[in-house]
Design a protein around this nucleic acid. Structure first.
Lengths: 219, 219
DNA sequence: AAGAGTTTGTGAACGCGAGAACAAAACGAG
DNA sequence: CTCGTTTTGTTCTCGCGTTCACAAACTCTT
């Protein structure tokens, strides 16, 4: 339930901050690779593209991991953020819909390197069941339940056409998936307790087009 | 310049509203295809997945296109939103970086159907210059300037690895592109007047992972 | 023509997030 | 040990976005 038991780790982090933590994590990884050991909030904020006051406030929700007058230990902070987000553990993920986008997602190396493991690729089209994409063979959508149960999958990715998306989501929810990343251009309705995040490529372009048009008008 | 001349169409629409207009547009298109002629704010809000008061306020920024006691004319409203966003005209777009994701983007039918025309696919790797993707042949990145000038391109899409992204962005800006959609996991710095929107697949998954972890902890 | 029933458009209250500014804490020099 | 310097963690204020609630406006029935 939503009963929050105010346990040790129960400070709840604002949604806006949660959305930025992965950005900080990536910036810190870059710093580690560059051999940096310590950085100030100013440095990290610049690398992440945000205001330094905002960065410090964000980090303060996690705890006091910096040292006044010195800054942050890059490695230590990186671990703390990774732990807070949950990417120190491995998350099994299923991808449904192996069209162009599904292919790209399956091959995306950024998932694996950040704690996500694609354990299954599913498609309703039997013609695709022969394929092997990124070392994982494409299986029938009907195998969903078994795979989710066997591998303990909690996160599903929908890369199907819009018309199929809701049905796929329903089936995912029914077999226990509680987080969905939706690439289909459709509004999904899911029960409480299930998180849905939507990525819509054409919406992003349309937002750009709006501003572009404004620029052209005022010129 | 940013000098706003308060012309006839100069009410500026809040950013949050702009981001939702494409969602409304899509919902309206669905309604049109279903043969609906009129809809209430309640109907449309449900189709778009938002609160009906928010929808009405959003629409009110565009003008008074509804009829009290009746609702909105679906076709008329759709046109008005499309015009406001700017998707009644055709936007030429270049995509740089034809890897997995670039392929998927080039093939994505949602662009074409929403007023975006992919006029060029560019890649730095000469081995890819033979390919033809989605009816457009892959060309050298060095052709960027000429293509942008010839076709009047204002919008660029970056689908390169992170390391190349900033250089590509700089070059885009230099030749006159003023809107960038960035899929590379990197923070871009661009001059004022250039809009950048970022889509980061692994960040979305990490946000889901955070919430997923919270659910697991409280259980 | 008048009243009942709908539905839009908007004024007002509220809550969240962003950023400025500052106090608290650590370090180093003398 | 003390003072000055640096940088964090936090408080405060402001503005934006969301939502409620209601008046204005339109239709339909009687």
């Amino acid at each position: 339930m939503t009963a929050r038991t105010t346990s040790e780790t129960a400070r709840d982090i604002p949604e806006a901050t949660v959305a930025r933590l992965p950005v900080y994590l990536r910036a810190l990884t870059t710093l580690v690779e560059a051999g940096t050991q310590t950085c100030s909030s100013e440095d990290l904020a610049a690398a992440a593209g945000v205001n330094s006051a905002k960065l410090r406030k964000d980090l303060s929700y996690l705890g006091s991991y910096g040292t006044r007058g010195v800054g942050y230990d890059v490695d230590y902070l990186r671990y703390q953020i990774a732990r807070e987000i949950g990417v120190t553990q491995d998350w099994p993920v299923v991808i449904v819909g192996i069209g162009n986008l599904g292919h790209a997602l399956a091959n995306y190396s950024g998932f694996r390197s950040r704690g996500f493991r694609v354990v299954a690729l599913l498609d309703a089209d039997p013609e695709r069941h022969d394929e092997v994409v990124a070392g994982v063979d494409v299986r029938a959508f009907d195998d969903l339940e078994q795979i989710v149960a066997d591998q303990g999958v909690a996160i599903g990715v929908i890369a199907t056409p819009a018309l199929a998306a809701q049905a796929v989501a329903d089936r995912m929810v029914a077999c226990g998936i509680t987080s969905i990343l939706n690439f289909a251009p459709a509004v999904l309705s899911v029960p409480d307790g299930v998180d849905v995040r939507k990525v819509d490529l054409s919406i992003e372009l349309q937002i750009l087009a709006y501003h572009e048009q404004r620029k052209a008008q005022s010129a």
